[in-house]
Design a protein around this nucleic acid. Sequence first.
DNA 1: TCCATACTTCGGTTAATATCGAACTATGAA
DNA 2: TTCATAGTTCGATATTAACCGAAGTATGGA
Lengths: 236, 236
Amino acid sequence: MKCNPYIAESAALIGDPARAGMLSVLMDGQARTATELAHIAGVSPQTASGHLAKLREGNLLAVERQGRHRYYRLASEKVAQALEALMVLSRDGPPRFRPPGPRDAQMRFARTCYDHLAGRLGVTLTDAFVDLGYLIGSAEEFTVTAAGEIAFDKFGLDLKELRRRKRSFARRCLDWSERRGHLGGALGAALFIQFQKTGWIKRQNDTRAVRLTRAGAHGLAQEFGIDVKLLGDGAA
Amino acid sequence: MKCNPYIAESAALIGDPARAGMLSVLMDGQARTATELAHIAGVSPQTASGHLAKLREGNLLAVERQGRHRYYRLASEKVAQALEALMVLSRDGPPRFRPPGPRDAQMRFARTCYDHLAGRLGVTLTDAFVDLGYLIGSAEEFTVTAAGEIAFDKFGLDLKELRRRKRSFARRCLDWSERRGHLGGALGAALFIQFQKTGWIKRQNDTRAVRLTRAGAHGLAQEFGIDVKLLGDGAA
DNA sequence: TCCATACTTCGGTTAATATCGAACTATGAA
DNA sequence: TTCATAGTTCGATATTAACCGAAGTATGGA
């Protein structure tokens, strides 16, 4: 009863440690170049190239050429779902190594996603921008309104300069813990830097977790009308 | 940045054709002996024994001894979910080799997904529950409304008892053929059992396919306002 | 034009593992 | 006890595929 030999193909693709590492890191919704992924997986560029070709062939990854770079991202949300399901399995089982709780909560509250802010804080902030009429969202990216131009400018961002950069300006990035879109791209990255400069947030040492300071909580309420109390655990 | 080497382990286990075959056939929730599984996977008993040991070690299978037999079954619903998620992936992509076949049509119409109902029938039923105001769906699970409590109780389900169980109560399970969510969890399983008890559905021998009886068609229309004619092929 | 960078393809080596034959243990029946 | 069946472990073999060095293609910039 050779029922579904097909699932073996996809599973085998995910089953290689190097490829699993690439896929895992792409779960944050960001696209990455082949070289970045090679470094992340800890293999040589030519080995990575082989892996990436297989993942593409197996419809797990999609690729987009931009100049001499090739940006790889998960082919669809379904891929992310399958990866999630496998992560759940890996958490089961014997103790192995159960990553500790508090940091996990911190990560869900706020973390870096490549170079911008993700987690509950990132999503809430993005929602607030939309509510305030600063941003208009589409499936793949955000547009800054006239009101947004003024507000971000007042906050110390140079939008004109940001637009000149090659990378996409205000990409919608999918958050895997929140399963919601949030602001990425050049604008998201610039905001993240600005938040650090003003001391509103602090990166935790050697992790992707991000902490909101007292000044940050105050500032978010003042500037963007965000009540941090509503953000729940990890906000303190 | 060795993020999640864990998922590679589980995926690699599923990634072998022989093991994938065993796992696929166990998706129907039944337990099977090592020899049966060897035959299904098309390998010798000693090879199968090795595979089964690995699957057990990896917490994908659970085993129960009965006399000189060892009955293997999926270790948990989570394993079934991961397998389904991988089936969704395998369906994507280029044609490859899509075996149509009558059995396939039956499977797409209605089948067991571990211990609950999947396929077009499962999805339609779930949709009907939502339309009738019995369930409210979110990304990961369903909530039973007051109206739903009454209806399911009338149908012979003991929701209080179901809620007491450890497993999740009303999970949304993704279907590989329909690519839609349908009702799983303790509630989904209980409904499936109830449907069998009332003689509305019958399991096909040795497959995951499920047949809707004439009484079932009538009952679905009567109780839940579902017109089976709209379900297309395989309904007869 | 020339060079640097990003990425790929090719070829040979090496490590991992799926496979089965043979032999072993455990259970049930005569 | 003796035999048959279910399942296992062990050892040898063969296939697969991950890996990297070397060399190739494509793009961007000077």
